[in-house]
């Protein structure tokens, strides 16, 4: 949990973001910022818009209004350079989305070779390094279907890490896992945070969020209701957060 003490501009900043799916307003004036090296957790009910907000950061959803600046890219504008953006931002999905026809090593080396033009030898070394970081060195030549859910998610994290992003996004990455597999993934994420990675995570794991998040954003019905340190959960100011904290929505 490192705080960036330099007065730099935030590495991720959302200002008054609006998004509708047809008649349904999913994001209604969402604003928050993330400093370099900071870990931000976004919590809220299903349908609060938290996943949508996260996906907007990496332009997996287009916004209807507002401003999003990520690593200097104006993501809200239509002419944003997507490939440059996605080299700066890494994203890990709830359903891991590993490529089933490739080995773990090939999953990891595909992008560095194709996008960053690394040689095969360099990429292989990189793959071994990131797999070691997530504790899966021996799975280099395995196929995704041979791994457990927790191992697949850790491999997916390694795959994103291989592109050396400045920011990593985690979209409910443990929601599809059995409880005993969740722990191994959370351990990897905790280590990444300790190593100084800037992270934005949407999560249900309240205990985890409390222990590693520098700040927490609570969303409800497309709006940000409260932001603050983890301690705010013990002292909610709004009725929505009070209800959310009290109704066992959260896994402690």
């Amino acid at each position: 949990m490192q705080q960036n003490t330099a007065p730099a501009t935030p590495i991720v900043s959302l200002r008054d973001v609006q998004k509708s799916f047809g008649p349904l307003k999913v994001l209604d004036g969402v604003s928050f910022a993330v400093e370099r090296g900071e870990v931000l957790a976004i919590i809220g009910r299903s349908g609060s818009g938290k996943s949508t907000a996260l996906r907007c950061i990496d332009r997996f959803e287009k916004v209807d209004g507002g401003e999003i600046i990520v690593c200097g890219h104006r993501v809200d504008l239509p002419d944003v350079d997507l490939r440059a953006l996605r080299q700066d931002v890494g994203i890990v999905f709830q359903s891991y989305n590993l490529f089933p026809h490739l080995t773990i090593e090939q999953n990891i080396t595909l992008a560095p070779c194709s996008v960053k033009r690394m040689t095969a030898a360099q990429a292989k070394e990189l793959a071994q390094k990131v797999l070691a970081q997530v504790g899966l060195e021996e799975k280099l030549h395995a196929y995704p279907e041979q791994l457990s859910g927790g191992q697949q998610q850790r491999a997916a994290i390694a795959r994103s890490l291989a592109m050396q992003p400045k920011v990593m996004l985690f979209d409910e990455v443990t929601s599809a896992l059995d409880p005993e597999l969740t722990a191994e993934v959370l351990k990897v994420i905790k280590q990444l945070a300790a190593d100084g990675m800037t992270m934005v995570m949407v999560t249900h794991e309240m205990g985890f969020a409390k222990s590693i998040a520098d700040r927490i954003v609570f969303m409800h019905r497309g709006k940000v209701h409260e932001t603050g340190l983890a301690s705010m959960l013990a002292a909610p100011k709004t009725p929505e957060l009070t209800q959310f904290v009290g109704t066992g929505n959260l896994k402690s």
């Binding site: 996605r86 931002v89 994103s160 592109m163």
Partner: peptide, 12 residues
């Protein structure tokens, strides 16, 4: 999801 993952990795 796999196409999204590939996009997230900045593949063309």
């Amino acid at each position: 999801g796999q196409i999204e993952a590939a996009e997230g990795l900045a593949l063309s």
